[in-house]
């Protein structure tokens, strides 16, 4: 967390005119984004770039107000940065793209960039844009499956979606089709602001659905601590996309490895700075989808994971 803040302060006096400048468009605050930013810097270093030494970074923080992203993106483009890095989800990439950047955009998202219209295809982005996708959106149905496996008797499972997310419709579609296969009903709930979270958990406690499956969404991902606290408070089994959730006391998570995706974003940013064309850099998908469970939480909730689930978990918190 401190590294992000440090980077924020160093950036102001690191604007040597000769250094190439990365415009870093971030949907959240330095505090919430710290772990991702570290991964990004690691990738950048692997490509041979060190902030303040041979590259300067201009940060723009939306602090969770995704509506501000287009304005911040335009700001970066007006600053004439050499490269726009748009990490943390489809809204960021779309905002950067919509701002009409003539410079290269390197995105990091959980969604399918082809489906979202960000790129033409994975191998040929067809523009000055490329990046990394963590597959988190694709695996939403897996989350439903895992929850179903934990609660095989449940007939209705709650699904939380962020209606402002560009990936929400496709995720819901996949979830409905998965629910059909699994033979469960879905109770769709919406939350696009932090203060709506509590209502969601409260309704679960009352309604027939007794578990929550969070769709892949950066807004949810960056608020894992809050979600974990609420889940514990209301005694609701829940699954989200990021390991931050079980780490913070949530039950389990299933999603792409954000460390990997942000690190690769850093590598790509470095390669673009070295002069490679984004057209020569295919969109990468992360290879690692991780499954993390918290046995302590399971015990507190009075639930038990089957042996096969435990053996399949990449990380088990006890």
């Amino acid at each position: 967390m401190m590294a992000g803040a440090a980077a924020w302060t160093t950036s102001s006096h690191a604007q040597k005119p000769s250094l190439p400048v990365i415009g870093y468009l971030c949907p959240e605050s330095p505090d919430l984004f710290g772990s991702r930013l570290r991964a990004f810097h690691q990738g950048l270093r692997e490509a041979g770039f060190f902030e303040g030494q041979n590259v300067a970074i201009e940060y723009r923080w939306a602090n969770g107000q995704y509506a501000r992203l287009p304005a911040l993106a335009r700001e970066l483009i007006e600053r004439n940065v050499d490269l726009v890095v748009a990490p943390g989800g489809a809204p960021v990439a779309l905002a950067a793209k919509a701002a009409g950047a003539t410079k290269t955009i390197v995105f990091e998202m959980g969604g399918d960039p082809v489906q979202l219209g960000v790129v033409d295809s994975l191998s040929r982005s067809g523009g000055n844009i490329t990046g990394v996708s963590s597959l988190s959106v694709d695996v939403s149905p897996k989350r439903l499956e895992l929850m179903h496996e934990l609660l095989p008797a449940a007939t209705t499972l709650g699904v939380v979606t962020n209606p402002t997310s560009p990936t929400a419709p496709s995720q819901l579609q996949r979830l409905r089709s998965a629910a059909e296969t699994l033979g469960v009903h879905l109770q769709i709930m919406s939350a696009s602001k932090e203060d709506e979270f509590e209502a969601v958990f409260a309704s679960v406690a009352k309604e027939s659905a007794n578990a929550l499956v969070f769709t892949s969404d950066p807004y949810f991902a960056f608020r894992s601590k809050r979600l974990a606290d609420l889940a514990m408070e209301y005694g609701v089994p829940a699954i989200t996309q990021t390991r931050d959730f079980p780490m913070a006391g949530g039950l389990m998570s299933y999603g792409g490895d954000f460390m990997q995706s942000h690190r690769r974003t850093g590598i790509y940013a470095g390669r673009v700075l070295k002069g490679e064309k984004p057209a020569d850099l295919p969109v990468q998908l992360v290879t690692k989808v991780e499954f993390v469970i918290n046995l302590k939480t399971a015990k507190l909730l009075g639930r038990e994971f089957s042996a096969s689930v435990v053996s399949g978990a990449d990380e088990v918190i006890e």
């Binding site: 290879t287 690692k288 089957s306 042996a307 096969s308 689930v309 053996s311 399949g312 978990a313 990449d314």
Partner: peptide, 17 residues
């Protein structure tokens, strides 16, 4: 056969490819 599923899921962890 539940055991085979456990084996298969364990394999996922061991062989990321």
């Amino acid at each position: 056969d539940e055991e085979r599923r456990t084996d298969a899921l364990r394999l996922f962890r061991q062989a990321p490819a």
